[in-house]
Simulated scan of single mutants.
Amino acid sequence: MQSRHLRDGRILLAPLTIFLLAMLGLPLVVDLIYSVSRVEFRTILSPEFVGLANYRSALTSESYWQAAWFSLRFGLACAVAQLLLGLFLAIFLAPLIDRRPWLLAFLMLPMMVAPALVGLMYRLILHEFVGVVPWFMFTYFGDSPSFLGPDNAFRTLVVVEVLQWTPFALLILYSAYAAIPKDVREAASIDGAGPWQRLWRIDLPLMAPVLGATFFIRFIDSFRVFDNVYTLTGAGAGGATTTMSIWVYEAFFKSGDIGRAVAASMLLLIAAWVVLSIVHRLSERRA
């Protein structure tokens, strides 16, 4: 009977397995071939094997490491800001949302807009010549910073990303906060624990796994950002706002160096696999 159930399970999983192999396995094999080949658009069907030259070219490129450093700083800044702001809003708005759950739908509206449209909207608002915000600042203060210039672009991009995706952190953290049994908080109150003690000794420890997962998800999403950065500032002056996604895009489509672009993508895949392996081992040890 057990062998029959095992056979039936394999039969049911076979279509999904074949689909995943076709949709994920085949492109991965093609990427591996292209990453060790000299290939352009005109030679895309006849790649020339060059070994690890594409990987060497990417790793020795100053612009590659500049883009990696920008993406790392951007991902960490956005993830930390969204986590802290989302946690504050989840706790502060919890009584109101408990009474009026439909308010949560309105709070989710920013992340329903396509990131490219968000970038275009803020580009029009913050543009130093036609933007509404610089016009008001010139009118009332006599001066306005260049929000999209090289000195302020990083902070502007972080603020735009945080404003759009904090609702995602709010949704997850509010769900985790609401899932904490009320009798635990009531028992702590009876024992004399104040609001801050309940927060630090009950709420945050119980929410720790969700906090870690939220931070990790938001970091990955911010690290690989493309749409709103590209529409707001593009690569920036001297590549000041070039993310890893923009670097790969420019190497692939603008320079036509498909092999180097794919090699850079494979390096990101390897780095992501290493990080996930470390996180998995740490979680197993903690468990």
Rank of each mutant, 00 (worst) to 15 (best):
F147T: 10
F147G: 12
F147Y: 12
F147L: 06
F147C: 06
L148A: 02
L148I: 05
G149Q: 11
G149I: 06
G149E: 02
P150V: 09
D151E: 14
D151W: 02
N152L: 11
N152T: 08
A153I: 04
A153K: 14
A153H: 11
F154A: 04
F154D: 02
R155V: 12
R155I: 12
T156V: 07
T156I: 05
L157A: 11
L157F: 02
V158P: 06
V159C: 09
V159Q: 07
V159P: 01
V160S: 11
E161M: 06
E161P: 00
V162C: 09
L163N: 12
L163H: 03
L163V: 07
L163S: 09
Q164W: 00
Q164A: 13
Q164R: 14
W165T: 12
W165A: 03
P167Q: 13
P167R: 11
F168C: 06
A169W: 09
A169R: 04
L170F: 14
L170Y: 06
L171N: 09
I172W: 06
L173N: 06
Y174M: 10
S175K: 02
S175A: 15
Y177E: 08
Y177N: 08
Y177A: 15
Y177T: 06
A178N: 09
A178K: 15
A178R: 15
A179N: 12
A179I: 07
P181E: 12
P181Q: 14
K182N: 11
K182C: 01
K182M: 02
D183Q: 14
V184R: 11
V184K: 06
R185P: 00
R185H: 14
E186Y: 00
E186W: 00
E186K: 11
A187E: 08
A188K: 03
A188F: 01
A188E: 06
S189L: 04
S189R: 15
S189D: 05
I190Y: 04
I190D: 07
I190E: 03
D191P: 05
D191Q: 09
G192T: 03
A193H: 04
A193V: 01
A193P: 01
G194D: 15
P195N: 11
P195T: 09
P195L: 10
P195V: 04
W196E: 04
W196S: 13
Q197W: 02
Q197T: 10
R198T: 02
R198W: 03
L199M: 13
L199Q: 08
W200S: 13
W200G: 08
R201W: 10
I202N: 08
I202H: 08
D203M: 07
D203G: 00
D203E: 14
D203W: 00
L204N: 10
L204G: 02
P205Q: 13
P205T: 12
P205V: 10
P205E: 10
P205W: 04
L206T: 06
A208K: 15
A208E: 10
A208I: 00
P209I: 09
P209F: 07
P209C: 10
V210P: 00
V210T: 15
V210S: 15
L211K: 14
L211Q: 06
L211T: 02
G212P: 01
G212C: 07
G212K: 13
G212Y: 08
A213V: 12
A213F: 10
T214R: 11
T214P: 00
